[in-house]
Design a protein around this nucleic acid. Structure first.
Length: 135
DNA sequence: GCCAACGTTGGC
DNA sequence: GCCAACGTTGGC
């Protein structure tokens, strides 16, 4: 089981819309590092769902239900997509501000590489976020 | 809306 | 293969 963090801009594709639709495919990644992270995803891996821009918070988690396949939005075979379904919503979103203040979360890729749209997350970081979000 | 950080492109 | 120029992202 692996954990990752994926970013969306809420006005493009929000958590609310995701929950309503019950499923989405994660496409449009045009960055090699993010692509590599996408390709490494396995079925049932968990992704933290992060809203960038004005929200700046982790709001819920998603489960991978289909591993990387050719991105349907492009003919370019360098890019891939995965299918996700909502797993759980946090009682209380974990904000970027909180993450910055958490001693144990300083090493998160989210903080180190702000532009990466699909980032790895360790089990410890994941557990920490969930306990913050569920408290 | 600005700008820093960083990824990508293309000329050499 | 290097690196300057350029474009995009995302926090503020």
């Amino acid at each position: 089981m692996q954990y990752r963090l994926i970013k969306t801009e809420p006005y493009k594709y929000s958590w609310e819309k995701f929950v309503k639709e019950k499923k989405t495919f994660w496409d449009g990644v045009r960055n090699y590092q993010a692509r590599n992270n996408l390709q490494a995803m396995k079925k049932w891996d968990i992704c933290l769902w992060y809203h960038s821009n004005e929200w700046k918070e982790i709001i819920g988690t998603a489960k991978v239900v289909k591993e990387a396949y050719q991105d349907p939005t492009t003919d370019d075979d360098r890019w891939v997509a995965v299918d996700l379904v909502p797993e759980k919503q946090l009682n209380k979103p974990v904000t970027l501000e909180q993450i910055k203040q958490e001693k144990n979360l300083q090493e998160m890729t989210l903080l180190k590489q702000q532009r990466l749209s699909v980032a790895p997350v360790t089990k410890e970081e994941y557990n920490r976020i969930i306990s913050l979000g569920m408290s």
